[in-house]
Design a protein around this nucleic acid. Structure first.
Lengths: 114, 114
DNA sequence: CTGTCTGCTACAAAATATGTAGCAATTTAG
DNA sequence: CTAAATTGCTACATATTTTGTAGCAGACAG
C-alpha cells in the first residue's frame, strides 16, 4: 500500500470502511467532541470565543478541528460565527445522554490523584 | 470579554471539571472508542485477538488504551479475556445510536476520501 | 493613522502513535 | 521432561499530531 503523507492532512484512516469507525476517527481527535459540544451547547460564536470556551486550546488545533468538522458537514461558518449544522445538531443530541451518564461515571472514579 | 491566558497550565483536557470533558478526554484518544465498540459489540477476547479485530493496531497503543479504559472502570481483564464492565456496557449502549446515525451521515460525505 | 478586534498561519518543541522485535510466563504436544 | 506456540506486554526508533507563541492581513473604532 502506498500512502503518501501530506503535511497538515490527517493520515489516520478508517481502514475498516465502517461508517462508525469513520465517525470515531473524526471524533476521536483531541478536542473534536469538546468543540462540537461547546458549540452546540452554548450556541454560535467566533473563533476566538470558542477558543476561550474550550479552555484555551491552541488556534492551530482549533482551526484543524473546525476544518474537519466543517468538512464532515457538522458545523458551518457564517457571518454570525461558527455554528452547528442540522446534522451536527442531530449528532449533538445523541451525545447529550453521555453528559448525564458522565456525571454518574465521575462519582465512581478515583477522586483525583492517588 | 476578556480571557486571561494562563501559560503553563496543565495540558490534558478536562480541567474544566465537567465530567463530560473528562469523558471526552478519555474517549478522544486514538482507538479508544473503537476498542470499546469492538469489545462490547463482539464480546470478550484476548489481547491479540482484539488487536486483530481493531485492524491491527500496535500493541503499544492497545495496551495504553486498555489501561486507561480499565482505570476508568469501563473494561476489565479476567481469565476469559478482556471484557466490558457493566458500566462500560452502559456507555456502549449510549454509543449504539451513533452507529445508526453514522450510516446516514456517511451518505452525505464526499465519495472520495479527501 | 493608531489601536483593537477578527480568523487564521508559521514554526519549533513536546506529546502521542506506529511498527517491529522480542521477553517472561503459560499452554500444548511429544 | 523438552520444544514449539501463544499469551500479555514492553523497548525502542520513527512518524505523526498537538501545543504554545508569535504574528499576519482585513475590518472597524476613535
Amino acid at each position: 500500500m502506498t500512502t503518501i503523507p501530506v503535511p497538515g492532512k490527517p493520515v489516520r484512516g478508517s481502514q475498516s470502511g465502517a461508517p462508525i469507525m469513520a465517525l470515531f476517527d473524526l471524533l476521536g481527535r483531541r478536542w473534536a467532541m469538546g468543540v462540537l459540544w461547546t458549540l452546540c451547547g452554548q450556541g454560535p460564536c467566533t473563533f476566538r470565543e470558542l477558543q476561550g470556551r474550550c479552555g484555551l486550546l491552541s488556534p492551530t488545533v482549533l482551526n484543524t478541528r473546525l476544518k474537519e468538522l466543517r468538512q464532515a458537514g457538522l458545523i458551518d461558518h457564517a457571518n454570525e460565527g461558527y455554528h452547528a449544522t442540522p446534522m451536527g445538531t442531530e449528532l449533538y443530541k445523541l451525545l447529550v445522554p453521555l453528559g448525564a451518564w458522565s456525571k454518574e461515571w465521575a462519582t465512581t472514579l478515583d477522586t483525583g490523584n492517588d
